[in-house]
């Protein structure tokens, strides 16, 4: 048995409810390895929403909150504001984060609050049985688009950059080591880090997006069809843009900004009014 598995998983909760060949296990390992490397186990809490991706932290032997659909970021912001020195990891999916929780993503990114958001993008609503999600590519036949999707897919990472997240990366489950390093960097980063992980879902998106239900085929496809982006490099058309897409250390984090503003207020106005 893996050393980390014994220490970090609730062994009596196993087996997981993931389908065979699911990418969630890879993300679970990457997260645990990152937390173990940073030795943050007691100072980290995981918050997740609803969906396949949101079951990832439920097997962690840590403080975990498995909340309601789309609101993981709202719960996490409350937790973070209550305990600003601790780290909060948010697990969310493409439907959870981009569809129902879009408003919370917008405001969390705009606030640049110190959270690490791991958005697992499997291009489909897996738990409900294979319906179209906001990230489903064009012309995919799903259960709710039997004639092929015609909604322009939302690119989570690019959206997060535009909304104001200060550390944005995208990896696939074919890049577990890079993903782990990105999670480490995201936890260390002060500000909202948004890590999009493109994950295979052999059961549902294997059928409607990739055309094969073989997880090895999908992993190979992801590996071959991704190009790792480095600053100043040109992006190849038609490939998945992987890598650290945005890293901005200059923008102040929300709680720092809030405390700074309160001190400014206290020093300039409130203290002047007090009678000693």
């Amino acid at each position: 048995m893996n050393r980390l598995m014994e220490r970090y998983l609730r062994l009596d909760y196993l087996p997981t409810l993931f389908c065979p060949g699911c990418g969630n296990g890879i993300i679970q390992y990457a997260t645990i390895a990152a937390i173990d490397k940073l030795r943050l186990r007691d100072d980290i809490a995981c918050v997740s929403g609803i969906g396949c991706s949101s079951w990832i932290p439920c097997y962690f032997n840590m403080d975990v909150m498995h909340t309601i659909h789309g609101r993981a970021l709202a719960f996490a912001q409350g937790l973070k504001l209550a305990r600003p020195v601790k780290n909060v990891l948010v697990f969310t999916g493409d439907g959870d984060c981009l569809a129902i929780g879009g408003n919370h993503l917008l405001h969390a990114c705009k606030r640049n609050i110190n959270l690490t958001v791991i958005m697992v993008n499997n291009h489909i609503y897996g738990m409900t049985g294979g319906q179209k999600s906001p990230a489903t590519p064009l012309n995919c036949k799903t259960k709710t688009s039997s004639w092929g999707t015609y909604d322009e897919p939302i690119q989570g990472a690019e959206l997060a950059i535009n909304l104001g997240a200060t550390y944005v990366a995208r990896w696939t489950t074919a890049h577990p080591v890079q993903l782990q390093k990105s999670i480490e960097a995201g936890i260390k980063h002060r500000g909202l880090s948004f890590i999009e992980v493109i994950s295979q879902c052999p059961t549902q998106s294997g059928k409607s997006v990739y055309g094969s239900k073989d997880p090895a085929y999908i992993l190979n496809y992801l590996k071959e069809n991704s190009s790792i982006y480095k600053e100043g490099m040109e992006h190849l058309e038609g490939k998945i843009k992987c890598g650290v897409l945005w890293h901005d250390n200059d923008r102040l984090e929300y709680i720092e900004r809030m405390k700074g503003k309160i001190w400014e207020y206290v020093e300039t106005k409130a203290l002047g009014g007090y009678k000693q």
């Binding site: 918050v47 403080d63 909150m65 909340t67 309601i68 609101r71 709202a74 719960f75 996490a76 912001q77 409350g78 937790l79 973070k80 504001l81 209550a82 305990r83 601790k86 408003n103 919370h104 917008l106 405001h107």
Partner: peptide
């Protein structure tokens, strides 16, 4: 904190309560 909507307000106070406040 002034949240973006009432859903977020209610959710964040639950989060804060688990943070011990």
């Amino acid at each position: 904190i002034q949240m973006e909507d009432e859903i977020a307000s209610a959710c964040s106070i639950i989060g804060a309560r688990w943070g011990g406040k």
